[in-house]
Amino acid sequence: MSKKISPDDISAEVRLELYRTQVRLREAEQRAFDLFLQNLVKGTSHLSLGQEAIAAGFAVAMQKGDLSFCTYRGHAHTLARGVPVEKVLGELMSRDNGLMRGKGGSMHLTSVEHGVMGSYAIIGAHLPIACGAAWRAQYRGDSDVSVCFFGDGTTNIGAFHEALNFAAIWKLPVVFVCENNLYMEYTPIADVTAVEHPAADRAAAYGLERIIIDGNDADEVLRTARSAYERARRGDGPSLIEAMTYRHSGHSRADPAKYRPEGELERWKERDPIKMYRARLLNLGVSETVLNAIEQEIKDEIEAATVACKAAPPPSTDIIFTDVYADGGWAWRN
């Protein structure tokens, strides 16, 4: 994995944006966890603490109009496209100010206006759907790229293979991003996969390049994303990227992650993407004051969002029967 810093190709503004985004994702998800401990976040939630560099790098490299397709571990990818923290926390807290007014919940965060085309809770389902959005772009000559995020566990389900082959033969402008956090739910991915790199080692089967990157290095993620998007926009077809990372928390809120070997989490925390990126920025001459200001700004946003969500009412029960069908209602008979 390359750790090389080449200051030339990433502007200072973009670097600050990468830092701001990562801090925002970290703080928002940490807040979601705190609210869960206070029994204010209902249902399940799947955090990606420790994986922020991937969401930040791919989102910051996107253009307006590019489309994100996420999994149930989708808070970070949703926030990274600029969706307000209040909208996400509101959804997690089943409030009327939530992104979908509480009709979807943590696993289905969607904000079409931000290009977040959905968070999909059935493993693998959204890879073919991202192909379809990319097919539309190809069909109409639109320049947007569809970017599809998923975990290492997804590489063992049929839809992964169907989508990869489909995207390759149709040369679709879609980028598949496997976040390899080493665990498929509660089980080491290596225990259930025939190859060492569950995504990259299968790329050849679809005529694609084997790409493995350090998913905790936001610069490396950004560079990889830029090159994959450029390839897609050129009409040269899909990419499959395996980004190595580690989730600091369990699979879901119900999982204390006791299955991890002793010391593993601590070793990965030394490679915490935000800690590393902060050190890099200081190294590059960014002042402590600038970084502190960013951190404070994020903390303020999250605090304000929390206050707003706590004050927000629950959704009106009228919406139980809305939007089943396109006429806005649920009528199935006359």
Binding site: L67, M117, G118, G124, A125, H126, L127, P128, I129, A130, C131, G132, A133, A134, W135, R136, A137, Y139, R140, S146, G158, A159, E162, A163, N165, F166, I169
Partner: peptide
């Protein structure tokens, strides 16, 4: 024409429909 990939066929139809086709 598509490959024998029913999930890809329906997923692609859905993604295309969601974005305007």
């Amino acid at each position: 024409d598509t490959p024998i990939s029913e999930q890809a066929i329906l997923g692609a139809a859905m993604g295309a429909a969601m974005t305007g086709l």
